[in-house]
Computed example of a mutant assay.
Amino acid sequence: MKAPNWLEGTAVAAELRPTSFHARSGDDGVDLPVERSADGRITAESAASILTAVKNLVGGKSWLSRVKITCAIGSRGLILRPLTIPAAPSAEVPRLLQLQIESEFPLPPEALAWGWIPLPTASTPGRQDVLVAAVKKEVVEELTALFKPIAADLVITPATLARVALVPADAPAFAIVDVAPTQCELTLREIEAAPSVRLLPWGENRLDDVTAAPFEGINRLVELLPMAALKLPLWISGSATAASKVAQLLQPGREGNLPPVRALEVPTGPGRTAAIEGIIRSQSANEA
């Protein structure tokens, strides 16, 4: 017999960004700054703050102390690659993928934490297309150690894929620009192609350039965007202020037959990011 949802533990959707941490459980959310050491790892003080914040977030909700956490991570160091393998049962897919990872990825499988999802693209008979996401194992080990005291189940997912859930299902091709303080994360989905991601050295702090020299800041972002992104339906995410402003500034350069640049619809408030909203929406769809 399947246990009622309230017996299965409290669910937390989270996102770890380069300089901040965000989490949401039900209607409650939290936003925290994150400090990192010279090697890029989260400092002990920030790790303790994150753990305390998540404990407080679910305090009183989970009397079994079993917390399910799905945490989105950024694309720095992320390998996102479509692969074609022989058609096989799901249980056989990891073994087949490991063989390809050994031959095609820059690091061996034992140095990576990786997962895969099926792709809806048409493949040749007897073959299947999948999308593999991989990061250095140290990234996952750091988060696993961080949440070990409270996590009964920890799922780590690329934020770039989580945001895709917010794009209307009838959009076969699109681009998403997620604006962070010092960089952007571009997700590109072209027709009959797997999603791809890249980091752009332009951030929300460059919006201040618009005051000093009209459109100078946004023009630099346009220069960094590939032509494919400029010709596709384009969504912007990030802080509510940044997403709205970037969408407004990018619109004048759009060709007349393209849909307007739009900000992804994300609720406002603590713990509300596009990646977190995408996680929640995907989980709701899977449970429906």
Rank of each mutant, 00 (worst) to 15 (best):
132 V>K: 11
68 K>L: 13
79 I>Q: 15
59 G>L: 15
93 V>I: 15
80 L>T: 11
149 P>T: 10
67 V>N: 11
49 S>F: 01
103 S>Y: 02
115 G>R: 06
161 L>Y: 02
77 G>H: 12
106 P>E: 03
91 A>M: 12
124 T>S: 12
89 P>M: 14
94 P>H: 12
160 T>C: 15
140 V>E: 12
68 K>P: 04
62 S>R: 13
65 S>R: 15
123 S>G: 13
156 I>D: 00
104 E>A: 01
121 T>C: 04
78 L>K: 01
112 L>T: 01
162 A>L: 12
55 K>M: 10
164 V>F: 01
57 L>R: 09
85 I>E: 06
87 A>F: 08
131 L>R: 11
80 L>P: 08
142 E>C: 07
71 C>T: 13
147 F>P: 11
136 K>N: 08
92 E>K: 14
108 P>T: 02
134 A>P: 05
148 K>A: 15
137 K>P: 05
133 A>V: 07
166 L>H: 05
126 G>P: 04
157 T>E: 11
114 W>K: 01
50 I>G: 01
121 T>H: 07
154 L>I: 09
97 L>W: 04
118 P>E: 00
75 S>F: 03
108 P>N: 01
99 L>R: 02
147 F>W: 09
143 L>T: 00
167 V>P: 08
136 K>Y: 02
61 K>M: 06
49 S>A: 14
166 L>W: 08
109 P>S: 03
56 N>A: 09
55 K>H: 06
66 R>A: 11
146 L>H: 00
133 A>T: 08
89 P>G: 11
164 V>L: 06
127 R>A: 13
119 L>A: 04
64 L>V: 14
55 K>A: 07
62 S>M: 11
60 G>L: 14
132 V>W: 10
135 V>E: 03
126 G>Q: 05
119 L>M: 10
45 E>P: 00
64 L>I: 12
